[in-house]
Nucleic acid binder design. Sequence first.
DNA 1: AATGAATGAGGCTTCATTCAT
DNA 2: TATGAATGAAGCCTCATTCAT
Lengths: 197, 197, 197, 197
Amino acid sequence: MPRPATGRKKEAILDAAVVEIASHGYHGTTVAMIARRAGVADGTIYLYFRNKEEILVSLFDRAMDRFVEQGARELADLTEPAARLGRIIELHLELVGSDRDLAIITQVELRHSLHFLDQLSRAKVGAYLQAIAAIIAEGQAAGLWRTDLEATLLAKAVFGVLDEMATDWVLSRRNTRLQARAEAVAAFVTGALRPLP
Amino acid sequence: MPRPATGRKKEAILDAAVVEIASHGYHGTTVAMIARRAGVADGTIYLYFRNKEEILVSLFDRAMDRFVEQGARELADLTEPAARLGRIIELHLELVGSDRDLAIITQVELRHSLHFLDQLSRAKVGAYLQAIAAIIAEGQAAGLWRTDLEATLLAKAVFGVLDEMATDWVLSRRNTRLQARAEAVAAFVTGALRPLP
Amino acid sequence: MPRPATGRKKEAILDAAVVEIASHGYHGTTVAMIARRAGVADGTIYLYFRNKEEILVSLFDRAMDRFVEQGARELADLTEPAARLGRIIELHLELVGSDRDLAIITQVELRHSLHFLDQLSRAKVGAYLQAIAAIIAEGQAAGLWRTDLEATLLAKAVFGVLDEMATDWVLSRRNTRLQARAEAVAAFVTGALRPLP
Amino acid sequence: MPRPATGRKKEAILDAAVVEIASHGYHGTTVAMIARRAGVADGTIYLYFRNKEEILVSLFDRAMDRFVEQGARELADLTEPAARLGRIIELHLELVGSDRDLAIITQVELRHSLHFLDQLSRAKVGAYLQAIAAIIAEGQAAGLWRTDLEATLLAKAVFGVLDEMATDWVLSRRNTRLQARAEAVAAFVTGALRPLP
DNA sequence: AATGAATGAGGCTTCATTCAT
DNA sequence: TATGAATGAAGCCTCATTCAT
């Protein structure tokens, strides 16, 4: 039986880390800063994380888990490839747009080193890309979408569009909602996948 | 009297920085590492750069200047929006793909902090985005491309695709050439911009 | 719960600083030297002092506090201006003369920059000067001392004499005791304050 | 035959050093700063001075030489001890007060290390003290001044008063003239030296 | 005599991590 | 589990000094 206190303190540390890293960057954030905001002692951090880097990893993992979990739930009763892809686009922008601090981390901080981007993010991002590719392949098989380009490449293109929208939103000072762009992005993607005449 | 050595030493430092930062990351690279590879004393670095961060900035500026310069030259005699956009796609992948170390920096290291990505990169990237948007707007005006979406948004989408391809290539261990994807990307973009029926 | 170790470690650092700075000068003393002598790690210094300069400031503050405290105690039951001034002279030379290392710092090292001497020392020295001036003014009012010169100026003169004696003693190699000059200095000052005929 | 150009450049360096050291302190002033203000190259400094410290030494020597020279001239036709001492007081305050930058150096910067104050300044200051002591001894022998205290001690006391007045003036922001205090100081000293009843 | 680019030793300071309590 | 004082390695940067021109 999991002790609730344990999970709660770990969560508190992660929550604190999101805020601090979002505003000071990963290297600009000290373990002490995270500890102070989380309301724990510096040493306590090391009861839950092997080292500073693991906090960042856990942060990303937690976000991805939530994303995957919600995605699985929301896509469960959608069978049409177009509907599924549209929902993914919505979800992606919705989730990234729902927490600017976390978005700063996923769109900016997590990309700060080859080592990092490669070993950690990409593993999960790879699975995400494959999920998109599967949907696209399905649509291609159903004759809905262009088949002159591989589903894998198309998936990367779609991801690239989503990622750029997210980054652009994070970097823009304007007080817009990322989610508001979902419709346009969906229109773009849908148009891009049309079969060639 | 022009002192050729001056420019040359600064270039040597930047060249050394590209290699070191590409393989150890910005924070994993010490000024001493760069100096050693450049064949100068540590202190010499500071005759040419105010601090470590300025090396990274200069690196990006140099790369962007070369990019812009070559872009301007190559696009000079192309008038057709489709041709211009196609050439930009080729150039983007060609230039990023021509120097993997530099690509690692532009695709990964430069994105390590909001401050950085915001103040430095985005200023120049913004100009690039606008250049693409202008071409797209031209194509829209000529009735070549879909007009249901704003040129600005379409430009971001196109950039997102290019950027994702570049990042994907940087992170993939496979010995492929980024440039090889130019044709497929162009096909994708061309298809995506088709007018709606 | 009071942690006695804390205060003690800070004291140890200050004690070590006195010795090192006295023999190598402020600029010739490194933080590492102080740490080694104090038996702590370099970083520990920064748990107690914001930076190297603050060590010097604290040194002076601690010395002044002790001086003021002892001065207040010793002057408490003296009412006669002459007795009070005489006691101050004794105390000044006694305290400066009781710790040659500390004396080197107060007489020499602390005067190493306008900024320093101005902002730090002078604030406290100013209060000291005023205390002397008050005693002199009292003596003047009582008709004991010359009134053709302002008490403020006379106080500076008295301080100048004490300070010069202290500096002279610090710089002299001879193994004399500074305190031994108290009587002569008192005689000088007493004579100097005599009313004009 | 001395080359005039040589002397002139050395003077320029010393003049520049006075200004820079007065406003940034000895340790806060770099050789490059002095060189820039003097209008010479960094390396040129080393054609005239062995190292940075020697600049400070030369500065003091030059000032003392001028002081001694002027003192000798002005005291030449004064025979009365009282007049001679009075003139010294005037001269001391006049010369220190005539160049605030130089005063900052003599009153503050030169005292920044035992090594310095000891080896360099004190040698010359010692001669100065002896000159004052000689005058006082003369006055004592003539029965003008108190004899219960040694001339050497009295000389230090007088010097202490002058030095404190100078330091006080340097540290005070007020726009007063140091020389204006000469009369009061002379009155104090004269009174202090009166024979005991 | 003069230059000023280049040197490189060394200092201050930060901060991830540990460990005795 | 929790603490937080202590550690000490390591980095950025400065600047007095040199030397080829």
